[in-house]
Design a protein around this nucleic acid. Sequence first.
DNA 1: CAGTTTTTTCA
DNA 2: GAAAAAACT
Length: 461
Amino acid sequence: MPSSPVTLVWFRHDLRLDDNPALAAAAARGAVVPVFIWAPEEETPWEPGAASRWWLHQSLGRLSAAVEKAGASLVIRRGPSLDALRTLAREFSATHVAWNRRYEPAVIRRDTVIKKALADDGLAVESHNGSLLFEPMHVATKEGKPYQVFTPFWRSLLARDEPVEPVAAPQKLRAAAATGKAGGKTLSIDALGLLPAIDWAGTMRTTWTPGEEGARQRLKVFLGRGVAAYGTERDRPDHEGTSGLSPHLHFGEISPRRVWHAVREAVGGTPAARITGSPEVYLRELGWREFANHLLYHFPHTTDAPLRADYARFPWANDPVGLRAWQRGRTGFPIVDAGMRQLWASGWMHNRVRMIVASFLVKDLRVSWLEGARWFWDTLVDADLAANTLGWQWAAGCGADAAPYFRIFNPTSQAEKFDPDQAYVRQWAGLGRDYPEPIVDHAAARKLALEALKVVSAGRK
DNA sequence: CAGTTTTTTCA
DNA sequence: GAAAAAACT
């Protein structure tokens, strides 16, 4: 007997109703069961860190409320994901399962297995693009290889048709009925244990509004007063010159297509390829987000190993004391310490300062970029495997289109240039009587870093 | 020649 | 990106 379509919509990094292709397809077809499954162990060794979990807790609350308002209710379960989906399919007599794709290596492996297993169960399984402007399988050089340099990658994106227009949130969701007395039950968000045991999230609460509405508001503010001066203001950690959208984009509370087209509309509907100045600089940052995801897709090993294989020889220092000083913001270099403390307190660090602290860790302390990547992973609310991997390998010089080996930031001159009134440093660095002496001599450290890089080149033919 | 600007160099 | 060297004034 033909059954009316019921779709499990598996929410992952797409915690929104707006421009959500999987949800839109499901809602257009029939009844919808919105699902979230907590299964961090399926993402090891890059399972969500503490700051990400805090964000996720808030974001799930917002999603649940939005789903409720639209007429359905969010069902929360624990993994394994496949078991949870199978159980839910039974409970709701589902005919379809839909989700938006992710590109982390462990997630791709898992999703591939799940897709096949559910299809073998007789369900119609579909995945959509909800997170990227253009997906990695559709972008390649003339030789058919993945781009490894940003500029040609970016030119090729601009040469294409515009990314598809975002689709509006479904007005109304038709809820599906669960069968059996235990069917359709949901865990509470609290039961997932995402919040820290000790409440260290005070500054995070005052800094951020997780969820779709918060994301929309951020975009509105940025387009209203940020984007026009973005080109220069984005380099000023003492100003609010950036969009602040990174965690919202990471969790998919807003789609990159929505942001892209909103920027275009803000400059009069110009085609992206003809946008210049600050708005173009911002769109280019969305381009870097794409580039990072494409690299992760094509070079999945780079989460844990350098893209440039000869960097495996680099003589990293084993310096737990130095690493600890860096993590806690006690290096004696105010701009570095300010950044690390802003990160610890607010779950975020200004991008200019991210480059400075990264250069300090890998060049001045010669501690492996992986240590930095792991620390950022645990502490950033916008921790994103693609962006984190690209960023750290860029700073270390071992990635695609990376900073050249000789680019070693001088923390003092960087601070003079980008924090000229010392406002940022005074806000965050904890300058005072007990402020530490510099833990290294930068000029000497720089020479040692250049010396160490000879080891990499020495083995080259 | 001291001070400043420009160019070169850096595995 | 920044230090050192070279070129100017």
